[in-house]
Amino acid sequence: MNAISVRNLSKSYTTGKQTVEALCNISLQVAAGELFGIIGPDGAGKTSLLRILATLMQPNAGQASVLGLDTTKDYKAIRQKIGYMPGRFSLYQDLSVEENLDFFATIFKTSIDANYQLIKDIYEQIAPFKKRKAGKLSGGMKQKLALCCALIHKPSLLLLDEPTTGVDVMSRKEFWDMLASLQQQGLTIVVATPYMDEASLCDRIALLDRGNFLEIDTPSGIIANHQSTLWAVKSDNMYQLLQDTRSWSGVTNVFPFGEYLHCSPHSSNTDIKELEAYLLSKKQQQIVVKQIEPQIEDVFMHLMNKHHVS
């Protein structure tokens, strides 16, 4: 059975004279037990989709079912079975760590002890601060507490809205390790994130941009579908290199990418040596050019551009 099934879902918001299409006729299936990533920048529609799945908001058109239940008709039953972590910290700031957890357990007619096994590894990290008010916790701790509260009733599906936004690389890594171990315990997990480098940590991903899915597949599948030639270039003067590379007619889509620039040759007949020769003629020094495998971020940018044009 699919844990999530979304068919032709649309959602728009109107403020004054402006209407924003947050989700434009999108469809999606997430299998039970999957760790599924919804990847896209701010304003892509990630939160709208998760809020509809969490039964907090109704779509304008289309249907969504969660764990076999309809999000409009069966919302009460769904809420018993899912854990939802909104993007903004929404626990009670003036309750302690322990009180928050106890409160959420009580609402779901269970106790901290009943499902302690599920949260044990995460809770132990914040247990030294269990008497501290949630509002006084640091960002990373708040996030761990919020995850514990979303898990306390042993849901079969977790919906996480940007759990790693604004968090440093180290804490992000730890958070994804926690998700992997939760998945092993049988949970289906849907994570929304603006970080493209988190894509490879998911079983499957959906690339979302301005209310449309650009592509849905495994991370390696998405990369395999876009086997266009990609080059990486660097030199000892990156700003000038950016201008110089752009001024060469043989390449397009020249963008900085970490310590390199990435660019695509216009035609498959273009030899990478021609680019190197051109850059040498521009007095660039310590030039490195090489052909590379695209990353998810390259594919996303490529698809965004295509979408813009069409």
Partner: peptide, 8 residues
């Protein structure tokens, strides 16, 4: 640049 799309 938090949350901004990769092109922007």
């Amino acid at each position: 640049t938090g949350g901004v799309d990769p092109v922007t």
